[in-house]
Design a binder for these strands. Structure first.
Lengths: 211, 211
DNA sequence: TCTATCTTTGACCAACTAGTTAAATTAATT
DNA sequence: AATTAATTTAACTAGTTGGTCAAAGATAGA
């Protein structure tokens, strides 16, 4: 027999999963509490019983997804390895992550840009705010060897992250110009290929950079 | 005295501008016909007189904005110049364009990803679908010299476009990790700097690419 | 000036939305 | 088995939304 407390957990997590799906697909303004309830297999009143308002439910989902994304980006850079190795591992793992979560980037980008306060909570976390300096200091010798100054770090970091995120976020738009992108099989092949292309591209640019 | 026909044009374009603003800010689902009417300085019934439904108004705005974006991307590549020169000009002009239209990328990306049929109309335009081949054929010698095969074009093109678009689209998210991005002055300086950074980065990667 | 047509409006409506409530059901405790 | 507490539901509400309509106002041509 299923215990009540397990059911709570089950129900709550069913709601959470359903809400994640719907919010990712439709965004905050496009999401409907009724649809979330339907997909969770419960009714609307129970939804409001667990999460009093749409805002509360959205916040819970959003915080988790944003943290998941940032941690995925940052965790690799906390390990012990050369910058070059970290970058390769980042592109490998992040692209795998994005293939499994293709709607996540646009969802996050869109919601944050429409309501920047959503990110306020995480900004306070010191861990995130100074990451640029931490990464640079850890690899200053290697990076200086590539002609990268501390002030170049934003350019470099955004370039690396953009290499993996942009193709996923812009897929449907780029597909206008490159119809192959519409086929899932071809797009996945493109993303697999991108791991090596991006890593090689960046390393070549760094190694031969004018100093 | 203002002629009636001029007024029509004025009203219609006031509606169009207001709708562009509101849709860009709030997206389709977040936009309100009442707010569009208010910003255009008219009432809701007149709004529906000129554009019968929200969908019709949205479509009109969306088509114009999508075309504006794609033309900006593609026009430069139709000119006569080396690939290298075109890429530099593209980054210069596209970044300027994006500084003036900072909400445009997220708006387009978001709406297209939520409803890919929005792009169907433009896909038919042969001009767009085969652009990859056209560009390659025009510069095949130069690109082969960089070790770029025709099958590498999607990777290269998405890399170039992402260099300019991603920082604008991901600004508020990257600002969590790099708080400087929040200040408009610093962000604009970053984007100005990016013209040279991106162009230099890409050319270095191309010139030293393993063949 | 009169008339036919095109514009503009305030008031309205039906459908939908987030959120509430009170009562029914289920589970845990004694 | 009875009591208590937690869980689930159908039915409802108040506010918002896109869209309509009939009538008033403005314009150009005769």
């Amino acid at each position: 027999m299923v215990k009540k407390k397990e059911l709570i957990g089950q129900t709550q997590s069913k709601i959470f999963d359903a809400a994640t799906e719907v919010f990712e697909e439709k965004g905050y303004t496009g999401a409907r509490m009724q649809e979330i309830a339907d997909r969770a297999g419960i009714n609307k009143a129970l939804l409001h019983y667990y999460f009093r308002t749409k805002d509360q439910l959205f916040m819970a989902v959003f915080q988790v997804l944003l943290k998941r994304m940032l941690d995925k980006i940052l965790s690799i850079f906390n390990e012990e390895a050369t910058f070059k190795e970290k970058m390769r591992r980042f592109l490998d793992e992040h692209i795998e992550f994005l293939i499994k979560n293709p709607r996540l980037p646009i969802f996050l980008l869109n919601e944050i840009s429409r309501n920047p306060e959503l990110a306020e909570g995480l900004k306070e976390t010191l861990q995130y705010g100074q990451i640029r300096d931490l990464i640079y200091d850890k690899h200053s010798k290697e990076l200086k060897g590539y002609g990268i100054k501390k002030s170049d770090m934003p350019q470099l970091m955004i370039t690396i992250v953009g290499m993996s995120v942009f193709p996923v976020a812009a897929r449907d738009m780029m597909a206008i110009v490159m119809p192959q992108m519409n086929e899932n099989r071809k797009f996945n092949a493109f993303m697999q290929e991108r791991k090596e292309f991006a890593a090689g591209f960046i390393m070549t640019a760094l190694k031969n950079r004018k100093k």
